[in-house]
């Protein structure tokens, strides 16, 4: 087997849109199941009452990371054909900060807001309107922002390069970090529950 299938020409652009819809269907299904159509559930992460965001995110990252690693190792998946977004640290650090602020102010991130709209949250409709406004504002200011957006271009850089550690060891490190994080998250939730019982 040679994968990614699309990159090996197993199907064309038109069919890739059907694939996109089906993959999106799975994406939305699991987000809603996890409770991520609810801003109150999502923002519980930032008040330490409900750390589902961390748990779901890192379970997903670890699962996909291990899958990619092992499929590449046995030679079924050509890792060089998987698109890894390049790195621009200044804009990605500032963008991440803004996104984090927007997350706790707005209650959603773009993907979860789509699920919230689909299940009837009116605040998510307003949030998505704000999102398109923000993108429009960014586009209109692009001339002025382009210098910063392009600053510090590093190309495609992955953690094994930066750390000087083999891919497999970084994968193991992330798994261990996630497992420690899960234990910590459970402890924080118990602490939060006791604190709210006392007050």
């Amino acid at each position: 087997m040679s994968a990614p299938l699309y990159k090996f020409g197993l199907f064309g652009d038109e069919l890739s849109l059907v694939v996109a819809f089906v993959i999106g269907l799975g994406f939305g299904f699991f987000l809603e199941r996890a409770g991520f159509g609810s801003a109150r559930k999502l923002t519980g992460q930032f008040y330490l009452t409900d750390l589902a965001v961390f748990k779901v995110m890192f379970s997903a990252i670890v699962t996909a990371m291990l899958g990619v690693f092992y499929l590449g190792w046995v030679g079924w998946l050509d890792l060089s054909l998987i698109y890894v977004g390049p790195t621009w640290l200044p804009s990605q650090i500032v963008g991440g900060l803004l996104l984090g602020i927007g997350f706790v102010v707005g209650g959603y991130c773009p993907g979860t807001s789509v699920v919230a709209v689909a299940t009837g949250a009116l605040d998510a409709v307003v949030f998505l309107f704000g999102l398109t406004l923000g993108i429009f504002g960014f586009g209109e200011a692009y001339d002025a922002l382009a210098g910063f957006v392009q600053a510090g271009a590093m190309g495609t850089v992955v953690l094994p390069d930066v750390l000087g550690v083999p891919y497999g060891q970084v994968v193991l490190g992330v798994v261990l970090l996630a497992l420690a994080g899960f234990v910590g998250a459970e402890a924080v939730e118990r602490w939060s529950a006791r604190r709210s019982e006392r007050s």
Binding site: L97, G102, Y108, S113, L128, L131, T132, L133, I135, F138
Partner: peptide, 8 residues
Amino acid sequence: GGVLMGVG
């Protein structure tokens, strides 16, 4: 929040 998220 949506606007911040769009720009970010």
